[in-house]
Design a binder for these strands. Sequence first.
DNA 1: GTCCAATATGCCTCGATGGTTATATGACCG
DNA 2: CGGTCATATAACCATCGAGGCATATTGGAC
Lengths: 113, 113
Amino acid sequence: MSDAALWTALADPHRRAIVALLLERPRPVGEIVQACGLSQPGTSKHLKVLREAGLVRVRQDAQRRVYALDPTPIAALDAWLAPYRELWNESLDALGRRLDGAPDTPEPPAPKD
Amino acid sequence: MSDAALWTALADPHRRAIVALLLERPRPVGEIVQACGLSQPGTSKHLKVLREAGLVRVRQDAQRRVYALDPTPIAALDAWLAPYRELWNESLDALGRRLDGAPDTPEPPAPKD
DNA sequence: GTCCAATATGCCTCGATGGTTATATGACCG
DNA sequence: CGGTCATATAACCATCGAGGCATATTGGAC
């Protein structure tokens, strides 16, 4: 479940839509298919990507597979953007100085990826 | 600067590396080229994508173009993952919130994409 | 067992994207 | 002006990924 896999998984709009759907509640594949207007195999492939990124878990219920969101990997995203969040929360003049190229911000820890 | 453009821009590891570089300080193209080990035109193309996503700004300094990070678009990312953060924090954080009496975050709207 | 419903996989096509080299633009210097 | 440094763009190629259809798999019902 590399960081790259996470970014790749979330890079696709359909997959983000699926993730948003599962945020509301777990759903079987059929529901997801209908909701995102793709073919069933197409949807299934997206679900595979999400699975491999660790973003969703499957529970088998008779012939149905009920997909549920696993938000844990998204914590990695949060960690990634933490330094940036700090930056944009800074005062506007700090941003201005930065855009002018003044190197006066204390070095934040570089994100690993 | 659609949301999609932002995700697309950050989906590439090289571009994330560039963003991380610019987090430390603004840099001219040459430095970025050397840092990420790509050809100069390749780097330039990535910079273009970042520019169009609004993630970087350019300042011209003689023949050099100094690129600086603009973290504002990343705020959109933060907004996007807010509901998920809440979700994964639930188990760990519920107790903590109770203990330090922090107000419960109001239900955020569902992510639009 | 047979049949059906739900989902996953294989195979194919096509457009997007990342990478390259070669060339154009543009700013400075003599 | 010509030359050169720094960067951008063009042209091109290779690969990748998303999408579709057809088919395999799996579990339940009969």
